[in-house]
Nucleic acid binder design. Structure first.
Length: 439
RNA sequence: GACCCCUUCGUCUAGCGGUUAGGACACAUCCCUUUCACGGAUGCGACACGAGUUCGAUUCUCGUAGGGGUCGCCA
């Protein structure tokens, strides 16, 4: 029997890291075993669910590259995949419980499922056998007075109907799993194999939820300038250690390495610094063209525009080792695209303190102007020649030039900047610096 | 309160009876260097506690403490 797993989010808010990782592990399981990954939207609570949240979750999953084989917009034999559209199926299952005498109605019309009140053991790939003594809890409500059904009931019915073989979900569900097993038994169905994965906690150990830093996929990752592959990779490491030399692994490697039984049973705290490190690693490996593609929306957000893609991609590529997030890119490259960039105030003060700086800069400009060609090499040579003539080190010249060409005291190599912006812009910028700043 | 899960450097973790307890992130120092970074090297740094089992416990058992979770007409 081929593996069927699912991610079953409730559309009450943004896709959350915890949910994303649950989806991720299910996806890995399906891809590793050639199984089917199903997306099922658990929107039975009409009061809390929103279409926006539902769309947002799909968007987040797509961004992470977690494509589903069955589900909304993908179709499949077991649809519809929105629980709000499956009432007829639930009614039929409900009738089975009724016929078996396993339900009873409250005064107000709500219906409860009669627990078997026997000892129940949950077989879990991660936690092992977890036994629960016969319960003393009140029977659980499975249908509201208005006829709509409750999570535990629809979750089990759909897992039966959709023929799930494995249920990989957060450990917060472990304590309720005996109730699900009780329902499977009542339906005469075999429960799936469970794997309850550890929770992702905040750095302070509290449960991570919406609002917490780093929790919402769209806000904290997509909009902040993470790369999907980096988030994918980092999330895998929270609660699972792939047996490999490096922690940095591609999707294919992760799929090949995935083993649900190797998932940890202890919770993990989210480490922002490490997630940034992963992103920086992935950023660095991008080709100039790929980097520009990812950077586009972030540059546009700062109103940076250009006509020459080759120059733009070279510009962002020149600072790829200096940033961890795409959103940091504009501040590092804006002067490649505009002429009216600002000069760092404290550097201005420092440079004006030495009157000879103006003549040093002028000397460099002269040599640059005299240069027959325009390459990083020729810029380097021109600066060296100017430095030699004035008996200073090139190292004294470069910071000045950098400042003139970018307004900043840090950035890519000066020769790289000069080469990319071109001879004309280089001269203009030096003149501007000389007249506006160092005069 | 009851029940369930968990406990190795600050964080993520390796370990599956005998190890100088390993790696990654972070941090510190040094090297490289026109800046900022990258990179390289080194360093700092942990088995929650208490009993048992054993020739020998980080590893097995029990207890304690601590953390997390669940007990909804939320999912």
């Amino acid at each position: 029997m081929s593996v069927r797993v699912r991610f079953a989010p409730s559309p009450t808010g943004d896709l959350h890291v915890g949910g994303a990782r649950t989806a991720l592990f299910n996806w890995l399981m399906a891809r590793k075993l050639g199984g089917t990954f199903i997306l099922r939207v658990e929107d039975t609570d009409g009061a809390r669910n929103t279409a926006e949240a539902s769309a947002g979750i799909l968007k987040g999953l797509r961004w992470l590259g977690l494509d589903w084989d069955e589900g909304p917009e993908a179709g499949g034999d077991c649809g519809p995949y929105y629980q709000s559209q499956r009432k007829a199926i639930y009614d039929a299952y409900f009738a089975k419980l009724e016929a078996a005498g396993r339900v009873y109605t409250e005064d107000n019309g709500a219906v409860r499922f009669k627990f078997s009140r026997t000892a129940i053991t949950v077989h879990d790939l991660v936690c092992g056998d977890v036994s629960f003594a016969p319960t003393e809890e009140p029977d659980m409500t499975i249908r509201r007075p208005d006829g709509s059904y409750i999570f535990h009931f629809v979750n089990v019915v759909d897992d039966i109907e959709m023929r799930m073989t494995h249920v990989i979900r957060g450990e917060d569900h472990l304590s309720n799993t005996w109730k699900h097993v009780d329902l499977f038994n009542a339906f005469g169905a075999t429960p799936p194999t469970y794997a309850h994965i550890p929770l992702i906690l905040n750095p302070d150990g509290s449960k991570m939820s919406k609002r917490d830093e780093g929790s919402a996929i769209e806000h904290s990752y997509m909009n902040a300038g993470y790369l999907p592959d980096a988030v994918f990779n980092y999330l895998c490491l929270l609660g699972w250690t792939p047996k490999a030399e490096s922690e940095k692994l591609s999707r294919n490697e992760l799929v090949a390495l995935f083993d649900p039984e190797a998932i940890h049973s202890s919770n993990a705290k989210f480490d922002l610094k490490k997630s940034l490190w992963f992103n920086a690693q992935y950023l660095r490996e991008l080709s100039p063209e790929e980097l520009l593609k990812h950077a586009r929306p972030f540059l546009a957000a700062k109103n940076l525009a250009w006509s020459d893609d080759a120059m733009a991609s070279a510009a962002v590529h020149s600072v790829r080792e200096k940033v961890s997030l795409l959103a940091e890119l504009p501040e590092w490259v804006h002067y490649f695209f505009v002429e009216d960039y600002a000069f760092e105030a404290d550097v201005v003060t420092k440079l004006k303190a030495k009157p000879e700086n103006a003549s040093l800069l002028q000397a460099a400009a002269d040599k640059l102007a005299a240069s027959s060609e325009w390459s990083e090499q020729s810029v380097q040579e021109a600066v060296e020649a100017a430095a030699k003539e004035l008996s200073v080190k090139p190292g004294a010249m470069m910071p000045l030039l950098r400042f003139a060409l970018s307004g900043q005291s840090r950035g890519p190599g000066v020769t790289t900047i000069a080469h990319l912006i071109g001879r004309e812009a280089t001269q203009k910028r030096i003149v501007r610096t000389l007249t506006e700043v160092l005069s």
